[in-house]
């Protein structure tokens, strides 16, 4: 493999990782603060993508659509928290999994009912279209570089929010002792709704940004959700830093595995068998990495509160 291709694949891994981080950040925040497993997080990603496609078709502006997607996903998240999730904090994880799984079905069918069964159209805004040359002669999509930029900006913003602001202080306090913070007069119910809406907004942002690259369709959130769970387990549940490192690790390992494994195996097995075996192995690779990390660090790379 040439160095140009290697650089391109590393960037691809980074871009996938950054996108996973946006999903995982909300998921890990919600788990860290409220102790809730939210399977319907992928549905909020879908809401973001659909809202973005709808607003873009209506106004013609991708950036307005991005804002619309953020608002729609955050609003859907807040509504979901107030109507359903609020009743689940005291329950065990099995009840939470069941209820949020039901929410996936509700969101999927409601979206299909609203937007119809056919995938929607969403394109990259004109200003971010095209590619830039990479050293070594390859080319890279400007839009993917923009996703990496937005992801890094969100990571820094979220770090500052949690470590430097009053809201962040309350979030950290909520993580360590929810009875005490309630006793100190903080409105814990509103805090939970705000945290949930924040996580939902991030998922919606991820969905909206990925919409122009992929297919905006019902059920698009579930494959990403599974990867996002792998990320937070690797990174340490409840840790923002863990989510970032875990996401980039998963993104790079997955991309490099898909790119390198079939080539490595073709010397041993012949091209056709190597293509199928390599592809099967590559899809297992991130789970193998997860197993190895959990063997040595059962609570993930950066356990919350450490």
């Amino acid at each position: 493999m040439s160095s140009a291709l290697l650089v391109e694949q590393l960037l691809n891994g980074l871009q996938l990782g950054v996108m996973l981080y946006l999903m995982a950040a909300g998921l890990t925040l919600i788990f860290g603060v409220m102790g809730l497993i939210n399977l319907a997080h992928g549905s909020l990603y879908m809401v973001g993508a659909f809202a973005c496609a709808a607003v873009a078709a209506w106004t013609g502006s991708f950036f307005l659509a991005l804002i619309g997607a953020l608002i729609a996903a955050a609003a859907a998240g807040a509504l979901m928290e107030i109507l359903v999730i609020r009743r689940l904090y005291g329950r065990d994880h099995l009840d939470q999994v069941l209820a949020t799984f039901a929410l996936i079905l509700v969101f999927s069918e409601a979206t299909r009912w609203l937007f119809g069964p056919f995938p929607l159209y969403l394109d990259i805004p004109a200003i971010l279209q095209g590619t830039v040359p990479l050293p070594g002669g390859s080319r890279y999509q400007i839009y993917r570089l923009a996703i990496i930029g937005v992801g890094i900006a969100v990571a820094i913003g979220l770090y500052l929010l949690i470590s430097r602001t009053r809201l962040g202080m309350r979030i950290r306090a909520g993580e360590s002792d929810r009875e005490m913070i309630a006793a100190l007069g903080v409105d814990i119910r509103t805090l939970y709704t705000v945290v949930f809406a924040l996580g939902a907004g991030l998922a919606g942002l991820a969905g909206a940004m990925i919409g122009p690259l992929q297919s905006v369709q019902v059920g698009m959130g579930e494959p990403v959700l599974i990867l996002a769970f792998v990320v937070i387990v690797i990174g340490g549940i409840g840790s923002n830093r863990g989510a970032l490192i875990g996401a980039i690790l998963v993104g790079v390992v997955d991309t490099m595995g898909r790119a390198l494994l079939p080539g490595v195996l073709s010397g041993l097995l012949g091209p056709s068998a190597a293509a199928t075996t390599g592809s099967s192995l590559a899809s297992m690779l991130i789970y193998l990495v997860m197993v190895v990390i959990l063997v040595f660090r059962p609570r993930g790379l950066f356990p919350a509160g450490s």
Binding site: Q9, A259, P271, A275, G278, S279
Partner: peptide, 24 residues
Amino acid sequence: TLAGEVYTQVGQTDYAAEIAQIRA
């Protein structure tokens, strides 16, 4: 002749890695 034969994951949504291979 075949310039490459690649099997992807079912349900895969990001093809950046494969597109880089095609280009090369």
